[in-house]
Simulated scan of single mutants.
Amino acid sequence: MRYYKLVGHTPVAVNSLSEWQEYLHSAQNLVAETIVGSSKISTSFSGFDLTFGEPPLLFETMVLGGPHHGRMQRYSTWEQALKGHDDTVIQVMTIMPPSE
Score class of each variant (00 low, 15 high):
9 H>S: 12
9 H>Q: 13
9 H>F: 08
10 T>A: 12
10 T>R: 15
11 P>Q: 14
12 V>H: 13
13 A>C: 12
13 A>Y: 07
13 A>L: 14
15 N>A: 15
16 S>L: 05
16 S>A: 08
17 L>A: 08
19 E>L: 12
20 W>H: 15
22 E>G: 09
23 Y>R: 05
23 Y>E: 08
23 Y>P: 12
24 L>N: 14
25 H>S: 14
27 A>K: 07
27 A>C: 15
28 Q>R: 15
29 N>R: 12
31 V>N: 01
33 E>I: 06
33 E>D: 10
34 T>C: 02
34 T>G: 01
37 G>W: 02
38 S>E: 08
38 S>A: 07
40 K>H: 08
40 K>T: 11
42 S>F: 00
42 S>N: 12
42 S>M: 10
42 S>D: 04
43 T>W: 02
43 T>L: 01
43 T>R: 02
44 S>G: 13
45 F>L: 04
45 F>S: 09
46 S>R: 13
46 S>P: 07
47 G>K: 03
47 G>L: 06
47 G>M: 04
50 L>N: 04
51 T>Y: 11
52 F>N: 15
53 G>S: 13
56 P>Q: 08
57 L>P: 00
58 L>D: 05
58 L>Q: 05
59 F>Q: 08
60 E>T: 03
60 E>N: 00
61 T>Q: 00
62 M>K: 11
63 V>G: 01
63 V>Y: 00
63 V>H: 02
64 L>D: 14
65 G>H: 05
65 G>P: 00
68 H>T: 00
68 H>Q: 03
72 M>P: 00
72 M>Y: 00
72 M>R: 07
74 R>C: 03
75 Y>V: 00
76 S>L: 11
76 S>N: 15
77 T>H: 03
77 T>N: 06
78 W>V: 09
78 W>N: 05
78 W>F: 13
78 W>Q: 03
78 W>I: 09
79 E>D: 15
79 E>P: 06
79 E>C: 04
80 Q>H: 12
81 A>K: 02
82 L>M: 09
83 K>D: 02
84 G>T: 02
84 G>E: 02
